[in-house]
Amino acid sequence: MKLFSNKRLILSLISLIIMIALMGVTLGNRGTVTWPEKMIQDTVAWVQGLIYKPAGYIAGFFEDIGNLGRLYEENKTLKRTLSHYARDTARLNVLIAENERLKEALRFTERQKLSDQLVYQIARVVAVNQDSSNNVFKIDLGERDGIRPDLPVITTDGLIGRVIRVSEFSSNVLMLTDINDQSLKSRGISVTSLQHPDSFGVIESYDHETGYLIMSKIKQEDPLQIGDTIVTSGLGEAYPAGLIVGTVVSRQEGSFGITHVAEIKPAADLSMNGLREVFVVQNAWDVANR
């Protein structure tokens, strides 16, 4: 039995070349999004949202029934945290007022003041791609709502990814799990520790086997300790400062013995299951000058 005749062989070879060329050209960020792509993205995202959201409500209803038993305990804990919260707020207000006054005294420009403030835009998830190497989900905010590529996306627990592709009314978000130091197009996130603000490191990859993020380029004399909360440092300019990433679970020497490497347990659930609402984070200056 002949699988390929001569004409077919040539035809399939040509299509093979075209496909590989297409993949090579579109690898990584391709710049502008063409209008047919935008049209398909938006139309299908709308239809997907029609199914995803109601299915989420139904799933949420069953989840709530399952959670009923735990409500009493949760309520007690929440009341305790609330009292802490009230105390912290009073202190925070004093600090904010002082910060404002000092910024005024030091003649901070309007841009500098606004770029320290963050704006959280809530977005609803409309579809999730189930593919372990291409963890992408779609949200219902797009260019019209001021979304740009590379904006960080968080849940209430912490950082989960960044916007990768934007069309008029919807955008694609790439999960943090796809960060990979072997890939040419992947980008690291510069982070620091909340307890030791002098600390510096870069999150460059994700270990699929352990489920931990890998923070590298830590100096040997760095004050970072196990148990520290890791937040973005804002030094890379792409991510604003202060977004929670996770907690340190281990720290050891890197493969060359020059710098240290730490494993970070992500604060947010990175499995993409049960994603409903996420927040897109921008600084206030960008929003004001949209």
């Binding site: 590989i20 690898l27 990584g28 791609n129 291409n134 992408v136 779609k138 990768i164 694609n172 796809d178």
Partner: peptide, 13 residues
């Protein structure tokens, strides 16, 4: 096209 994260054409191919 819909789930463009890294590359176009892997699923098509």
């Amino acid at each position: 096209v819909l789930f463009y994260g890294h590359v176009l054409g892997a699923y098509t191919f």
